[in-house]
Design a protein around this nucleic acid. Sequence first.
DNA 1: ATCCCGAGGG
DNA 2: CCCTCTGGAT
Length: 222
Amino acid sequence: MPMADVRPFLEALAAANPDPRSELDYTDPYTLLIAVVLSAQTTDAGVNRATRTLFAEAPTPEAMVRLGVEGVGQHIRTLGLWQGKARNVVELSRLLIERHGGEVPRDREALEALPGVGRKTASVVLNVAFGESAMAVDTHIFRLGNRTGLAPGKTPREVEDALVRRIPPDMLRNAHHWLILHGRYVCKARVPECWRCVAAQWCRYPDKTPPPVEKPAKRKSP
DNA sequence: ATCCCGAGGG
DNA sequence: CCCTCTGGAT
């Protein structure tokens, strides 16, 4: 049975996933754009750290171009795929100046025309920084949408459309973030931890896995 | 060993 | 659809 109303589900996820944007201003489109470009094949902690030190040195597109590929690389060497990302960050910044007066365009086509920016990155920027009705579907959200009944679909695009259609407009902003965190840390691919899921009561997933049996604490053994 | 909060290209 | 680029976490 499909979830009748997605609002309680999303409210529970929102409450369980406090806004992680504390040290960095991810409401700033440029900061967010760079952070998301850096995020592929890496951990969130790594991206946060790299973005923080990078922006301390080059907070604007102009400064980023001046810093150059080598300079950017210094900040992101611990991330996966960092060589390509360093090139993308600099070239993308140059194009922002050349095409958009140094601003991040509020436009999907313009965003996706930038190197290193695909559909998912553009969606996150449009949604989180600009408040547009966009969703990005990765493996976590795809699985969660189908498993929970929130947004069933055979293809990522179908799931995406279902999400944009079903999620109340006032909840769309940041919904991507709540869903992705929930999919990563609770509604996991192999072993979903339903016993600590705040939204289990609205979920149709049949496998309500029990909590792991508490192993006897290891006393000082002989 | 396996999996990523992807994009670009064949 | 497939593959490659890459480092870190588990």
